[in-house]
Write a protein that binds this DNA or RNA. Sequence first.
DNA 1: TTAATAGTGTCTTTCAGACACTATGTC
DNA 2: GACATAGTGTCTGAAAGACACTATTAA
Lengths: 236, 236
Amino acid sequence: MRSSLDFPKPLVSVDVAIFSARAGLLQVLLVQRPLEADDPFPGLWALPGGIVDTVKDQDLENCAKRKLKEKTGVEASYLEQLGSWGSASRDPRGWSTTHVYFALMSADDVELRPGGNAGDSRWFAIDGPRMKERLAFDHADILKAAIARLRSKVEYTSLPAFLMPHEFTLTELQKIYETLLGRPIEKKSFRTRILATDLLEEVARRKEGANRPAQMYRLRNRRHPLFFTRALVAKG
Amino acid sequence: MRSSLDFPKPLVSVDVAIFSARAGLLQVLLVQRPLEADDPFPGLWALPGGIVDTVKDQDLENCAKRKLKEKTGVEASYLEQLGSWGSASRDPRGWSTTHVYFALMSADDVELRPGGNAGDSRWFAIDGPRMKERLAFDHADILKAAIARLRSKVEYTSLPAFLMPHEFTLTELQKIYETLLGRPIEKKSFRTRILATDLLEEVARRKEGANRPAQMYRLRNRRHPLFFTRALVAKG
DNA sequence: TTAATAGTGTCTTTCAGACACTATGTC
DNA sequence: GACATAGTGTCTGAAAGACACTATTAA
């Protein structure tokens, strides 16, 4: 009987699904796999991430934070673990596992960095439940799970607020909720629900346009989303 | 520059937090670590699990199912991934990761099996937010996260129904909800809420006692919990 | 009959949904 | 003034909370 330590070990990596709201749409940050032929999925787009470095990284979450910072230059306003994926088939190099994190951030403080061993990186708008783009590894499945998680939490949390720029109007926030839900929501209910909490605070600026200016708000300092006791329910 | 494949690889394991309701209490199944001195945490209690076998296991979920079946002899009525933990310090043998699954099952079809390399196994009742027992590795943290996940889902799902024996009364189900929530809930609201769905079906048997007999129910065949659109809210 | 638990009737409360209305800016 | 978008007033409806009430068994 062999000891528990001489099993062949799977590859261990960490990937991050980084979301932001840009141009009124949910967008995800993807990086292009290098074009070298010995690399799996050369040239395809993938979630940013890579092999865990057992010297640099003390734990998985710090590894995710490091990769996030390398890619975007900043820390995320919200980071949680999405889950882990592992199988014999997801990486052509052999049995592999990945620990996936889920990050929400303000588009306006990101400056994309080419760093790491990845080539280009860019934001992709998300429209339906999955992307049309073919992604490397099982990243299409992972991204689908990340989007599903975000969508389901929109019903009963303030999570979308972490996607907003630093200052925004209630209408802009509502638009993101509606984009994520894929359906319109009632203006009055939405405003009452949000303003009844201490989620936001007014700022002095107002958003001007060819119409009545709108009050701008910013997130009060919090790391965790608010949970509402009722879900938003489809009109019917 | 070294290739991405010659990094030293962490140890990869899968653990399962197996819950059931016994004697009106939430209970978790733990196994005792072997007493050999070269084994980490000899004699301490731990979540059942172990190293991923890249030959036997095609993916993480199947590995969890295998370990679950080895331990209990049956399949769980509910299985989901809880998350993953990985760090340089959680296992004295070096950088290690574990993928943790969360299983709910009927106590009445489990027959504990000593199998695997673990010694004794038994159910532990859970009272507060964590166990008093000292556990191996970081399993106390993991178990705490599992309990927190279960507790938070009780507010708006039918998850506790998966913990029940095959046939049970509404009062018994309510008691488990109350145990998990740590507070009483209104009988009428609870019954209306549950019976308004197709979660349960009546069975012919009734529970007899020194009082009015109670209708017994069983779970309609479903793998996923029901989600309610409102959370239960504390009395006050 | 009493004790004990099962199960119901019904009023209140909370908050989302609907939707018409008013307010305030630019042009 | 027209227009566009911000923001409010207020009614309805659905489901939880409160709590008193009735029902059915064994002993």
